[in-house]
Design a protein around this nucleic acid. Structure first.
Length: 409
RNA sequence: GCGGCGGUGGUAGAGUGGUCAAUUACAAGAGACUGUAAAUCUCUCGGCCUUGCGCCUACGUAGGUUCGAAUCCUACCCGCCGCA
């Protein structure tokens, strides 16, 4: 399924190919997030034009959307999305965190960073974790009506159920069901959660009845010995690939080096990767879950990560932020009102060659959906293209050189 | 000309004696966003500064009543509507 074509001489970076029934993925690669069987704003044609190789959709959300009945007669993500290229699905494990402790404790999975509303306004934890699986508190029939009547029900997601759903969705690569913890959780809780996650992952593997490829997920939070233990345990199971999940230290999310408008970062700080990757089999792909700012991508690659998924290019694009070679610009700022320069002159994507910053500014001000569409398109292209540059650099033994431009001190 | 209604911060529009520098929305400014309940969320938004529940100037203009007025009274100016 996975072939390493070349290893970088100065780092753990590697060039590879993931083979799937729907084609290959050249790695290192960025994975575009299409949670609801749709990358927001973009058509599958757009995604191809933006050099997308692999899309990740979500088990929990598709399950909520379709129900068990709908899933039984679902034609599969490939057909539904009109995407005949590689696909993967997340197991729903992340929602155990994002709808649970992320709401209750505040903050995101990267230490010191928040999901939205990081202020001290604890929200209701919608998740009840048991040893066998997770109960999600759902407002039905719709969120808006729920506030009046308070019609809540609980839906139960277990490793077995997650795998069942993922088999109905039919992605090429599926993920084991896990429980990510918050950076705010202590050692004791992480240890308990890790034991649970390890058991759930074994159950996930056992529950699989198709020939879809399944990745195991390494957890362990911010604790070295737990990460080690998890990498050894999960790495020793018969998964087709491995994902790194859960919470990460605050070194992630740094703006990067001068090329990205930051002061440079120290790769030694990204310890969670060093703790884990040496214990994972060399001949299987490694995916870093939900991480993907530009600096993170470079550091991840240098430490041996093959694929990354992240909502940043699409979400921030919709919010008016566009990634360019020397950082990020906010197109909703008044200074772009009459800016007649192309969005990103160095970029050869379908948007940048045509539209100016001023035009995009106006579209954002008009709340024209086209604004988010164009910005998302460019961002995805930018991320995919950056990964292509990284692959080329590894092939030409110039990875370190390229990384210096973007992230190093 | 007479009568009625109304003139509030960038805009719209609340407030009809004290808790009003004034609800709210929009606009504007700043920030956040990492396996997407996220085309979302947070903060600022009269001026000044020692950023205090501080000082000053403000609810068409000018006076007045009152301990106290965006709120009541008088005159004037302006706008809309009706009648001549």
């Amino acid at each position: 399924m996975f072939k390493v074509l070349k290893k970088d001489s100065s780092s753990r970076a590697r060039l590879g190919i993931i083979e799937t029934p729907h084609g290959i993925v050249e790695t290192p690669s960025f994975v575009v997030v299409g949670t609801h069987a749709k990358v927001r704003e973009l058509s599958s044609q757009d995604l191809v034009r933006a050099k997308t190789q692999l899309i990740i959709s979500n088990t929990y959300h598709m399950w909520q959307k379709l129900g068990d009945k709908g899933l039984r007669k679902y034609p599969g993500l490939h057909e539904s999305m009109n995407w005949q290229r590689p696909l993967m699905t997340d197991s729903g494990g992340f929602q155990v965190f994002s709808l649970g402790f992320a709401r209750e404790l505040g903050g995101g999975k990267v230490a010191g960073k928040g999901l939205l509303q990081q202020e001290n306004t604890p929200e209701e934890n919608l998740v009840r974790i048991t040893e066998d699986g997770v109960y999600f508190k759902i407002m039905k029939p719709s969120y808006s009506e729920a506030s009046e009547g308070g019609q809540f029900i609980e839906d139960f997601l277990s490793p077995k159920k997650s795998v069942w759903i993922q088999e109905k969705l039919g992605a090429d690569i599926i993920l084991a069901f896990d429980e990510p913890t918050s950076p705010l959780h202590d050692y004791k809780y992480n240890k308990e959660a890790l034991a649970r996650t390890h058991r759930w992952e074994k159950e996930s593997l056992k529950a699989k009845t198709t020939n879809q490829k399944m990745y195991g997920i390494v957890q362990g939070g911010l604790f070295e010995d737990l990460r080690n233990e998890s990498a050894k345990f999960i790495g020793g199971l018969d998964f087709d690939g491995f994902a790194l999940g859960g919470s990460f230290g605050s070194s992630f999310s740094a703006p990067g080096g001068p090329a990205m408008g930051g002061g440079g970062i120290n790769p030694k700080q990204f310890k969670e990767l060093d703790w884990v990757i040496p214990y994972l089999p060399e001949d299987k792909p490694r995916h870093l879950l939900g991480i993907g700012l530009v600096a993170d991508l470079f550091i991840g690659v240098s430490k041996g990560v093959d694929t990354f998924d992240c909502v940043v290019p699409t979400r921030e694009g919709r919010h008016g932020h566009v990634y360019i070679p020397n950082g990020r610009i906010d197109l909703t700022k008044g200074k772009y009102h009459r800016d007649e320069t192309l969005l990103c002159p160095e970029c050869d994507c379908a948007v940048c060659t045509v539209i100016t910053k001023g035009e995009l500014y106006q579209l954002f001000k008009d709340k024209n959906p086209r604004a988010g569409y164009l910005a998302s398109f460019h961002n995805i292209y930018f991320f995919n293209n950056l990964m292509a540059k990284i692959r080329q650099a590894i092939a030409e033994d110039k990875f370190e050189e390229l990384m210096k431009k973007y992230v190093l001190v």
